[in-house]
Nucleic acid binder design. Structure first.
Lengths: 134, 134
DNA sequence: CCTTAATTTGTTATAATATAACGTTTGTTA
DNA sequence: TAACAAACGTTATATTATAACAAATTAAGG
């Protein structure tokens, strides 16, 4: 009966729910501000929850923004293969689901002989909305 | 006679030379420490040089490490298309030169209709050396 | 049920990374 | 040489992230 695995602790649940409700990536200290009513007082409590949530693939870190976004992709095998599109104007971020892309990158090998176990890809440009407004 | 363009300022030259001599990516404050003999005293002086060097494509930022590495790729059009391989064990970082990959990614389009002007890709795994030692 | 190990928590302090704001100096161009 | 842009120097401060330690909570096995 050992199911476990998906059982999150209290702080982890709180942090995850904030991130899932958000429309875009959240910064750690903005999360902190948002959860202070619920008893989380210190940065470390947030960072610890974030670390765990990343580890189990519930969220991803957008490295170029130091911000965190909920995983949108049931097929992303525990954060081993992530790709995002980022609008340079409105800062909208979206996780890219694209089987061809992920297969291409997961199988990619260069001449170094190194086999990659994980990748993170960030695309930048103007989203549809922002392109129209230009 | 207006050549310009490639003329770097004093601080920019100092910072670039440190990064080019390094065997791997350098952190901003480690650069600062290294250049204090040469008259650069404050973080901002380093960050300003770094910003400029990134802008003109002489160096890249390794986002997952907050570190900076010299550009190794004459074909990378002013940092619009970057890919790196990063060893999880020894932290060795190398810029990937691969025409197929860069073409594939530069031409990539997903169903959002967004056309991407820039990307940054980071691969993680074990380099040859570290794989042998395991 | 009890205990032991692992995980999570709470808390304080501090490290590491990065930018704001200001006035000055240098370089480029007309 | 005037005028504008770029780079500089400096102080202060914002932002992001981790160290260290003790207490509380939560599996899981005997």
């Amino acid at each position: 009966m050992t199911q476990k695995q998906e059982q999150l602790s209290k702080n982890q649940q709180i942090v995850l729910s904030i991130i899932e409700k958000a429309k875009g990536p959240l910064k750690a200290y903005s999360i902190l501000y948002n959860v202070q009513k619920r008893g989380i007082k210190a940065p470390l409590q947030v960072y610890r929850a974030l670390d765990k949530l990343i580890e189990i693939g519930k969220i991803h870190k957008i490295e170029s923004k130091n911000a965190f976004i909920a995983c949108n992709n049931s097929e992303c095998e525990i954060s081993k293969a992530t790709a995002f599109s980022i609008c340079n104007n409105c800062e909208h971020v979206k996780e890219i689901k694209n089987t061809k892309l992920s297969k291409y990158l997961s199988n990619f090998q260069d001449n170094s002989g190194m086999k990659y176990k994980k990748y993170n890809l960030e695309f930048f440009g103007l989203c549809k909305n922002c392109k129209l407004k230009q």
